[in-house]
Amino acid sequence: MCTRKGFIVTGLLAVFLLPLYAQTWETDFYNLENTLKFSDFLIRTRQYELAAQELERAAFFAPGEPNVQLKLLQAYRLGEQYQQSIGTVERLYMNRLTEMPADFGKEYLHSLILSGDHGRANYFIGAAANLDQADRNNYTLSILLLNRNWEEARDFAAENLPVNMRLANIARESESIRYKSARLALAMSAIVPGSGKIYTGKWKDGLISLVFVAANAYQAYRGFSKNGTESVHGWVFGTLAAGFYAGNVYGSYKSARIYNNQLDEALQQKALDTFRSGL
């Protein structure tokens, strides 16, 4: 009885499983189509380096397929592998770099700009045959903004149309930056210790500097008034007071410069985010 049951079960399993087994052999996960699907999934899930590896394999399968190569360049760019992207484009269009199609040219420019090679990017913008005027303007403006050349960027955005509105707005926004004068901060702290720091927005640091300088100067004054110039107490605190005073004057100058640098950095970051999100 048991043997009969066993035969029946084995028979049924064979009937149902064998076709499935055959099906599994029908799917080739590594063909071009599935590789591209998988790389799309990897890009959607932000696994750009893995996507680039898949696409390198796909590009090997289909060497003359521009869509695959373009996807590979995108994966490199998104994964911040700019040098690989630049190298791949230069290998593909070795002796005719300026004649590459617009899509490839844009990827090439993106990678050049994001890798910081703005000199080559500027040259390519001027020499590329297949870029339209709007793209040339957008890339030039991006380079100006990323280099914090605000005035030049404003003039360029006003004189060269069409241009990306978001980039043009950033260029215009730069006009409203209110810098702090480092020299004024220095002068203020030289007159009233701590006031330069308060001017740069660091009022707590300013007040503490004032207290440090005033307390040490007062101690020095006490020492000198009691024992004259022979007073060790006076000299020690006098030296400290002078040190804190000079430190505060320099610190106020530095604070203004850092404040200005932070303003520039914030706008530069905005330009970079806009550039990364696509023009």
Binding site: K204, D205, F244, A246, G247, V249, G251, K254
Partner: peptide, 16 residues
């Protein structure tokens, strides 16, 4: 460097 160091000493607090 010394002025910078004195400036740092005045900033050495947890107020900011």
């Amino acid at each position: 460097g010394l002025m910078n160091a004195f400036d740092r000493l005045t900033r050495c607090n947890a107020l900011s």
